[in-house]
Structure formats: structure tokens, C-alpha cells
Design a binder for these strands. Sequence first.
DNA 1: TGTATTTATGTATTTAACTACGTAGTTTTG
DNA 2: CAAAACTACGTAGTTAAATACATAAATACA
Lengths: 160, 160
Amino acid sequence: MNIIDESGILAISTRLQRLSEQLRKDGALVYKSYGIDFEPKWFPVIYTLYHKDTLSVVEIANEIGYTHPSTISLLKELEKQKLIRSKKDKIDERKRLIQLTAKGQELIEQMKPVWEVMKNALTEIANNQNNLLRAIEEAENKIFHQSFLQRALQLKSEEE
Amino acid sequence: MNIIDESGILAISTRLQRLSEQLRKDGALVYKSYGIDFEPKWFPVIYTLYHKDTLSVVEIANEIGYTHPSTISLLKELEKQKLIRSKKDKIDERKRLIQLTAKGQELIEQMKPVWEVMKNALTEIANNQNNLLRAIEEAENKIFHQSFLQRALQLKSEEE
DNA sequence: TGTATTTATGTATTTAACTACGTAGTTTTG
DNA sequence: CAAAACTACGTAGTTAAATACATAAATACA
């Protein structure tokens, strides 16, 4: 066991990041093993469009929890892959409305069994005495009510 | 609730990353609120050197779980801050041995109470019905025995 | 109604990690 | 003991996110 893992809660951000990165990388290889040309980073956008049909750039950004410039660059890649297309909103000329193409929808059908396998593999990994997904949800919820910064500042002020 | 959060386990990598990023950002602000000039990304290196005294570049990289080029760039920043120094290993001339400077050690003493506060705030956030830190450890352990990729490939082959 | 504010999108730049590759010592081996 | 393989470190370039800034359209309001 190394020092960082021993340090416990203090290095939790590092460890969350490392775990995320590992899963992302393996995810890419799973798609590849099915002969599917799909990058895990595209998942949030594609999955959102699959469920919401038509959304603007900022709406997608909010759904996936990224900034809009990051979202725009994902959309550019997906447009290059011809998985999505966009058109101007007739009512609000500033808006660009994004939709899946037929190719995008076909790809989703192709990916559905892959997602099922991934879901099962991830469940194996995450479902322990402490369920990782539930733990994330609970932590997100705590932060929603009071952020890490707010909590730290409060503890600091209580000390004085 | 947005689609990504509803998608559950499939978007777990995205959510881990988001959570990590939030904690990292707030961490930076906590140091700032104490008037301490320290970036959270330096923590793994500094904390490791604090416990191990003298290590080579690759040893640090292994301890903190980063690649050696990433580690080198962290070390460069820390050297610029005069928090660490390095000297050639007399026995193995390829090695560069890294140590904390006096300034680095003083900074650690200054940070100890901040770490205590952070530890408490993070514990508040992570300690729920499902403990996030334990959940991470358990998931890491599962992956150590069989990776996400291996699990997915196995599930795939069982289906055929 | 025309000016101020807000919203939607886009571009440029930065950041923090990575991979790929190269060089120079060290160790192993035929 | 010389060649091959390995290890340690470094640099260059890439990637995937962010922030900062700019512009244009829509909305609010005096």
C-alpha cells in the first residue's frame, strides 16, 4: 500500500479521478472489442440526445454537466462522425438545435447490448458493502446542500 | 434530475470525474482562505515526501499513481516554489533524488491544521449510508482482481 | 422605442493529465 | 566482457477538460 492510499480521505479527489480514468479507458476498449467506433466521452451527449430528442447546445451542456465550450467541441466531433446534426431554431435564431442522425440512432441500437454488458460489469465492481454509485449520490447530495468549501470554512470558524 | 444522473451506473466515470473536480476546486479555495499558497494537485507529491523523506522521480510517480512525465512537471513546479530540492544519486547516476526543503517542511507544519479541517469536512461529505472512501477502496480492490475490461469481455463471451 | 441586460453560441487560450519517443546509465547474459 | 535488455529520466506533442473573452439575438424596461 502506498502513502497516498494510506492518507485516506485527504487524497480522495486524486483517487476519484484515477478510478474514473481507469473506467473510461477500459470502456473505450470494450467498445473496440465489439468493433464499435465510439469514444466513452461521447456517451453523455449521445445518451442525452437519445432520451431528449432535440436540444440546444446549452441545454445539452447543462444536462451533461459540462461547460458549453467543452460541449461544443464534443458536438463538433460527433458532427464529424455524422452521429448528430443541427439546425437553427426558427423561433430563436441564436439557438442551434441538435439531434441524432439516422446513423446515430443505428449506432445506439448497436451499442445497447454493449451497454447492457458494461452495466453488469460496472455493477459487479461498484456493488460492495458500500455501493459506489449510492455513495456518489449521497456525497453529491451532501455537497448540494453545503459545499466542501462552506463546510471547511464553517469548521474553521468554529475553531477560532 | 438530468438524464446522465438517471442513467445510473453507465455514467459513473463521468460522475466520479465531476465529483473529483469539485473537491479539487474547493480544496484550492480552502488553502487560499488560510492565506496558504498551495495547489491541491501538489498534495500527493508533498504528502509522499513528507512520509518517505527521499525518493527518486519514478518512485514518487509510482507512489502517487501518475506517469513519470506528469510527475516531472509537478516536481518542476514544486522546485520553482522552492518546496523541494533534488540531487544526483551517487550510486546510480541516472537517478535524481528528491527531498523537501526547509521551506517545504515549514509549509507542511502550516498546512497540518488545514488538513485537519479538510479531513473533517470531507468526512462529513463522504460518510453516509454508503461510505464513499470505503466504496472507492472496495471498487479499486475489485478492479485489482479483475479489471472492468476483463469483466466485460467475460460477460460478453458468456452470452455467445 | 431605443437602450441595457441577459442569453446562446463560438473562439482562443490554459491546464493537467496522458502517450510516444529518445538518451544515458545499469544489469543481465551468451 | 561485449552485446542486449532494462531502467530512469527527460522532452515533445496530444487530449479533454476548463476559463476568459467576444458577438449576436432576444428580452426587459425607462
